[in-house]
Computed example of a mutant assay.
Amino acid sequence: MIAVLAAAAVGLLSAFLPFTPAEPYLIAVVATTGTPPVALGVAAAAGQTAGKALIFLGARGAIRSTWLQRRLSRRPSTAPEPPGRLGAMLARPKAVGARLVEVMERPRQATGVLLVSAVTGFPPLLAASVYLGRTPMRPVVFAATCLLGRAIRFATIALAPQLADY
Rank of each mutant, 00 (worst) to 15 (best):
R99Y: 05
A46F: 01
I157M: 12
P36T: 02
A28F: 11
D165C: 09
A28S: 10
V113C: 07
T66M: 07
V10K: 00
A46M: 08
T111D: 04
P37Q: 07
G112T: 01
L12F: 15
V30S: 07
V103N: 02
T49S: 13
V141E: 04
L26P: 06
G47W: 01
L114C: 08
R99S: 09
A128T: 15
M137V: 04
P123H: 07
L148T: 14
V103P: 00
P161I: 06
R106Y: 03
I157S: 02
K94P: 00
R108G: 11
L54K: 01
G41R: 08
A91C: 02
L132T: 02
A7D: 06
E81C: 01
I63A: 14
W67F: 12
T49A: 11
I152H: 00
M104F: 10
T33N: 03
S129R: 10
I55L: 15
E105L: 12
R153N: 04
A22F: 05
A160S: 11
A22D: 03
L54W: 05
T66A: 14
A50Q: 02
A62D: 08
V30D: 12
L125D: 03
P83H: 03
I55H: 09
A144E: 00
A44L: 04
F16I: 12
Y131V: 13
G61Q: 13
P37H: 05
W67N: 02
L40T: 00
A110Q: 02
P76G: 14
T156I: 02
D165A: 15
L72F: 10
M137P: 04
L125Q: 14
V116C: 11
L17A: 13
A44S: 09
R134A: 15
L72Y: 03
K94A: 15
A160T: 11
S117G: 02
A91E: 03
I55M: 13
P80V: 01
A6G: 06
S14I: 12
G11R: 04
F142G: 10
A143Q: 07
M104A: 05
T120D: 04
I55P: 11
L86G: 01
A22M: 06
P83E: 11
P161A: 09
F56T: 06
F19P: 02
A22Q: 04
G121E: 03
R134N: 09
A95L: 11
R92W: 01
P37Y: 08
G97V: 13
A50L: 15
G112A: 12
A91W: 00
M104C: 12
L132F: 07
S73E: 11
V38R: 08
P36S: 06
I152L: 14
F16L: 12
L86A: 13
A7V: 04
T145D: 09
Y131M: 11
V116P: 08
R99D: 07
Y166L: 15
A127T: 13
A22H: 01
A88N: 08
P18T: 05
Q162S: 12
A79P: 00
A118M: 11
A151K: 04
